[in-house]
Amino acid sequence: MDDLIRRFREGDPDAVRGVYQRHAGAVTTVVRSIVGGDAALCADVVQQTFLKAWRAAHTVDADRDLAPWLHAIARRAAIDAVRHERRPTIGGHAPEVDVPVDPPSFERTWEAHEVRRALDDLPPDEREVLRLSHLLGMTHAEVAAHLGIPVGTVKSRSHRGHRRLAAALAHLQVGGDDANRSADDAVPHGGGAP
Score class of each variant (00 low, 15 high):
Gly161Leu: 05
His58Leu: 02
Ser156Cys: 00
Pro103Trp: 01
Cys42Asn: 02
Ser156Ala: 12
Ser182Trp: 05
Trp69Gly: 08
Arg6Phe: 03
His189Ser: 11
Asn180Gln: 11
Leu172Met: 12
Pro123Trp: 05
Thr29Val: 13
Arg86Pro: 01
Val101Ala: 04
Trp110Asp: 13
His162Glu: 12
Ala144His: 06
Val19His: 10
Ser182Ile: 07
Thr49Lys: 11
Ile34Asn: 04
Leu136Thr: 03
Gln48Arg: 14
Lys52Cys: 05
Val99Ala: 09
Asp63Leu: 08
Gly152Arg: 13
Lys155Met: 09
His84Asn: 11
Glu114Leu: 04
Pro123Arg: 14
Ile149Phe: 01
Ala118Ile: 06
Asp184His: 11
Glu96Cys: 05
Asp121His: 12
Pro188Lys: 05
Ala39Gly: 04
Arg32Lys: 13
Ala186Tyr: 03
His113Ala: 14
Phe50Lys: 09
Ala118His: 04
Gly152Val: 08
Arg108Glu: 15
Val143Tyr: 02
Gly91Phe: 02
Ile149Gly: 00
Gln173Phe: 00
Met1Ile: 06
Ala144Ser: 12
Asp14Gln: 14
Asp2Phe: 07
Pro95Lys: 06
Leu51Val: 12
Leu41Phe: 05
Ser133Ala: 14
Tyr20Gln: 07
Leu41Thr: 13
Asp184Lys: 05
Ala43Leu: 01
Lys155Gln: 12
His159Gly: 08
Arg157Gly: 00
Ala168Glu: 10
Val82Cys: 10
Gly36Arg: 09
Ala141Asn: 05
Arg83Val: 13
Glu96Phe: 14
Ala24Gln: 14
Ala53Gly: 11
Ser133Cys: 05
Ala166Lys: 07
Val45Ile: 09
His146Asp: 07
Val151Glu: 15
Ala53Ser: 09
Gly161Thr: 06
Tyr20Cys: 06
Ala72Trp: 02
Ala24Thr: 09
Phe106Tyr: 12
Arg164Phe: 05
Gly148Ser: 05
Pro13Asn: 01
Ile5Ser: 06
Ala40Val: 09
Trp110Glu: 13
Pro13Trp: 02
Pro104Met: 02
Gly161Ala: 07
Leu147Ser: 02
Gly176Trp: 04
Arg160Ser: 13
Gly37Asp: 13
His23Gln: 08
Ala78Asp: 08
Pro123Ala: 15
Val97Ser: 10
Arg117Pro: 02
Ala179Gln: 05
Lys155Phe: 03
Pro68Leu: 10
Leu51Gln: 07
His146Thr: 14
Arg117Thr: 15
Pro103Ser: 01
Gly25Arg: 10
Val151Asn: 10
Asp178Thr: 04
Ser156Pro: 01
Ala62Glu: 15
Asp120Ala: 15
Leu136Val: 00
Glu128Trp: 02
Leu41Val: 12
Pro104Ala: 06
Val60His: 04
Asp61Cys: 05
Glu126Tyr: 04
Leu147Pro: 03
His146Asn: 07
Gly161Gln: 04
Ala81Thr: 09
Ala166Gln: 12
Thr109Gly: 09
Ala81Lys: 06
Val129Tyr: 03
